[in-house]
Design a protein around this nucleic acid. Sequence first.
DNA 1: AACAATATAGACAGGTCTGTATACTAGCAA
DNA 2: TTGCTAGTATACAGACCTGTCTATATTGTT
Lengths: 188, 188
Amino acid sequence: MSSKREILIDKATELFASGGYTAIGIDRILAEAGVAKMTMYKHFPSKQHLILAVLKQRDEVFRTSLITYVKQHNTPIDKLRAVFKWHHEWFARPDFSGCMFINASAEFQDATTDIHQAAAQHKQLLTHYLETLLGDIFPASAKKLAVQINILLDGAIVAAQVTSNHNAAKEAWEVAECLLKQSSHQQA
Amino acid sequence: MSSKREILIDKATELFASGGYTAIGIDRILAEAGVAKMTMYKHFPSKQHLILAVLKQRDEVFRTSLITYVKQHNTPIDKLRAVFKWHHEWFARPDFSGCMFINASAEFQDATTDIHQAAAQHKQLLTHYLETLLGDIFPASAKKLAVQINILLDGAIVAAQVTSNHNAAKEAWEVAECLLKQSSHQQA
DNA sequence: AACAATATAGACAGGTCTGTATACTAGCAA
DNA sequence: TTGCTAGTATACAGACCTGTCTATATTGTT
């Protein structure tokens, strides 16, 4: 429906990602989106609400893209490898600027704020998805492994963002492989 | 020497850590530090220079603390375990608010800026330190292992910050242990 | 005591920030 | 026509931002 709302969210996503949530002002988003200020304040009562809408859409787009990509693979191990491959391709994109949720929780440290909680929820949803993937092979230790693989993925994101390490996803996958190998031995 | 300079850096560190670099204004730092504005601008020609001074001190304090802690342990494996234990204790501190360098590179995405480069350098110095620790056991693969263990540490930091996972360092260490075990088999 | 270095308060410029108020326009539907 | 909805332009309030300026005070050293 309201196309202006979508335009606003898309442009805000782009600018927040590359410029930070605090540093990017409303006026800049409005100018680049070609939307009047009052239109924005009718859709979003405050900047904070716009940020939350951005994060909500980002969470959906991000997870849908990943899950769709992984679905194209068959075996559980292939699926897990695909998770890291998806990250590898993400890191290589010219507009890659780290994880918007990690960045959001950096700027909004207070864990009781809605924005920080939105970031935490995204990470939890991702961990839960990993748990479903792992449940097919290691039902007993799926939960713990999911947390550990999530740590590897977040570490790779940070390495790609901070030190521009383009191999971070591959290096992280090798660690994950090692972990999975050990788990299959322990299972036997 | 100039105690005012130190007071400024300490207070700025505290405020930037919990409030973000952009969101915290000079005036707030000056008021809480009890320092006049002109005094600050004599020591630091701009806010950016103050941020750089904060990061420089943080890098030194951080690495010195870690290295001192690790030195109390003897065997190479014990030293590596101590690295994760140090992080575990860091995460448990009430003023823990993530890694100031990860947070800085989130707010200053442009990799050509001095601030982003200071963040990257810190991570590289840390990786290099890990490499020296690993060199004692796995001289051939120390470089690669150092990068991978650094990914684990950064992932743990993110987990502790975003989702308040207080066990992140322990979970990451178990993964590292697995990696080290595999490396010692391959070496033989 | 004289000097230089360091720090001080407080006002100020010029800009930006979020959010509000007002008055106007265009399209659509009953 | 009438009325409703969505959007626009523009100005504004009030706060906050970085950085500069001036004139004064404090301190330690020689």
